[in-house]
Computed example of a mutant assay.
Amino acid sequence: MVAVNEKLSEDQVTERLLTHVPEDKKQVLASFIVGLFNLYEDLYFTYLEINPIVVTKDGVYVLDMAAKIDATADYICKTKWGDVEFPPPFGREAYPEEAYIADLDAKSGASLKLTLLNPQGRIWTMVAGGGASVVYRYTNL
């Protein structure tokens, strides 16, 4: 467990996590874990899986990795992430209305999102947040 705003140290990792790791690999693995944890926080990852991983006394080798970043942190991490394009939800192409809102979002410091769940539907819901979420509903009856 790492508390919010607490920094992870190599000593903590070695003492609490690496109790069954051979002595000659503990230092290099602890250093890797602390660096990975710091990167995870700094780049706003929401998920990270490494499998398999190879650890030698000289280094750590990631053979395969899957990761997800938090799209809502785009305004914070854009310079660190580079040019990242997030796919539309549900594995489909964005509707023109969604693309328009995404374009506005890219040009704004605000967080603007729109997902059309049923484009033929009569009720549209828009969730807006910022600590206190607000839901707007348009009904065309």
Results as ranks from 00 to 15, higher is better:
Val4Asp: 13
Phe86His: 04
Val134Leu: 14
Lys107Asp: 11
Trp81Ile: 02
Asp58Cys: 05
Ser133His: 15
Asn38His: 12
Ile50Asn: 01
Leu39Gly: 07
Ile101Glu: 05
Ala99Arg: 09
Glu98Leu: 01
Val55Arg: 03
Tyr100Glu: 06
Asn5Asp: 14
Val28Thr: 09
Cys77His: 00
Leu116Pro: 03
Gly91Asn: 12
Ala71Ile: 05
Cys77Pro: 04
Phe45Arg: 03
Asp103Ala: 15
Gln120Trp: 04
Asn118Ile: 03
Gly131Ile: 04
Asn140Trp: 12
Val2Lys: 13
Val134Ser: 13
Glu93Trp: 00
Ala106Tyr: 05
Leu141Ile: 07
Asn38Arg: 09
Pro119Asp: 05
Val2Pro: 09
Ile123Gly: 00
Gly129Asn: 07
Gln27Asp: 12
Ala110Leu: 10
Asp105Val: 04
Pro52Ile: 06
Arg122Asp: 15
Ala106Ile: 05
Arg137Thr: 14
Asp70Thr: 03
Thr56Gly: 08
Phe90Asn: 15
Gln120Tyr: 09
Gly129Gln: 03
Cys77Gly: 03
Leu63Gln: 08
Leu39Val: 11
Phe37Leu: 01
Leu29Arg: 04
Pro119Arg: 06
Thr125Cys: 04
Ala106Asn: 10
Met126Glu: 11
Pro87Thr: 12
Thr125Val: 12
Phe90Lys: 14
Thr79Met: 10
Tyr40Phe: 11
Leu104Glu: 08
Ser9Met: 11
Val62Ala: 04
Leu17Pro: 01
Val13Cys: 06
Thr115Gly: 06
Thr125Glu: 13
Glu23Gly: 01
Leu63Gly: 05
Ser133Pro: 13
